[in-house]
Design a binder for these strands. Structure first.
Lengths: 212, 212
DNA sequence: TACTAAAAAGAACGACCGGTCGTATATATT
DNA sequence: AATATATACGACCGGTCGTTCTTTTTAGTA
């Protein structure tokens, strides 16, 4: 288990840089993120960054991967610890709102910011972001499909549509919570999805009580 | 009605510049929009822009105003030509989707892009964008409230929540239509709102037929 | 025709951008 | 102890950024 101390040091630096990069990019975008600012905010030299990534684009791609891992840990993992079906769907959405409301990232949502930033800019970054959102969409649809299979949602449910709707509530929350009243926004995002699921789910005991 | 030819020329230039600025900013953001590119794409000198706006920020603010006017003409005006109530709500959403699907702007949606870009960057631009989205939200809520008053939606409808939901479908469409399958995305955005309104509206004749 | 004012161009600026290079410093291997 | 390697640094490059200043062109006025 003894690892090379040099590699360990590099790994430590890499992680610290990418964590800071995800934070900064969530607020300023992957393009607005400048190597000079990033290096300065970490107390390292700009040129030192090039020892780990040969170009800014490579660092941008690595930053995306890091943000995916963070999303996996903080939003997807909690949901997977919840029983399949509507409860898992609800847990996923709830973890997302908690993540936004907890101000984990200064910009709110890394993916919402960067996907809007790059959706009209061809290149490797855009392609990678498209892959990420496709995987996220597929995951959401799988959760909805499972709920249908379990009989917790009607058999004629439009799975892709419901997944779209749930995601839309989250995206809107990420945007509006920073420009309008956050509390009101989160309440809408929460009760929107909850109301939707409650209207479809035949077993009301599976979902939390509370004001619509 | 005879106007000063010099001023008229300036007005023409100003309009042309702002139209191009809205287009470019919808794809690259208000910050990614560089004065050099903007000037070059118009066949104008960079310094000439400063005859009309004293700084980039001033031009950014003017660009926002121009985008608001465009939104007013192409999305709000058509809706206001439709009878009040759920039909007007539906017309508004439909005009929005048509605007996105018609590729009027290369980036899809000026506001979605810039609001995500600036939601974590304090300053005059962010403040102006916050005003714009607040006005848009108020407008949407007014349309929903009118439908309730007309009896086309239940009296106990959560007006602000329904307005949030309708807007969320639009925001999600702007983002996903550029990274995932556009046709599927627009179908979801359309049938999502339509399904929502049909489930609430007691008079089915007010809304178009068609698959869910 | 002379004068004025608006619009636009041109050249130049300091600051910062992403990126390169040579070098110094740790840590490992022999 | 000598050597190799991964990491990190400081100095610097060409280019672009927003911005300023000066000059020229265009249009209206007396």
């Amino acid at each position: 288990m003894n690892v090379d101390g040099r590699l360990a040091r590099g790994q430590r630096t890499r992680t610290a840089v990418l964590d800071a990069a995800v934070s900064l990019a969530s607020a300023s975008g992957l393009d607005g993120l400048s190597l000079g600012h990033l290096a300065e905010s970490l107390g390292v030299s700009k040129s030192g960054l090039f020892a780990h990534w040969r170009s800014k684009e490579e660092l941008q791609l690595a930053t995306i991967d890091r943000a995916v891992a963070q999303w996996q840990e903080q939003i997807i993992a909690p949901a997977l610890r919840t029983p399949r079906g509507v409860r898992r769907i609800h847990a996923l959405h709830e973890a997302r709102i908690v993540f936004y409301a907890g101000r984990v990232l200064p910009g709110g949502c890394f993916f919402a910011t960067t996907e809007f930033e790059f959706n009209a800019r061809p290149g490797a970054v855009r392609d990678r972001l498209a892959e990420v959102i496709a995987a996220w969409t597929a995951f959401l649809e799988r959760l909805v499909a499972e709920a249908v299979e379990l009989g917790e949602l009607p058999a004629d449910t439009d799975v892709a549509l419901l997944a779209y709707e749930i995601d839309a509530y989250g995206i809107a929350a990420a945007m509006r919570s920073r420009l309008l009243d956050p509390e009101v926004t989160y309440r809408h995002a929460r009760s929107g999805v909850l109301g939707r699921l409650r209207a479809l789910c035949p077993d009301p005991a599976l979902l939390p009580e509370g004001p619509s």
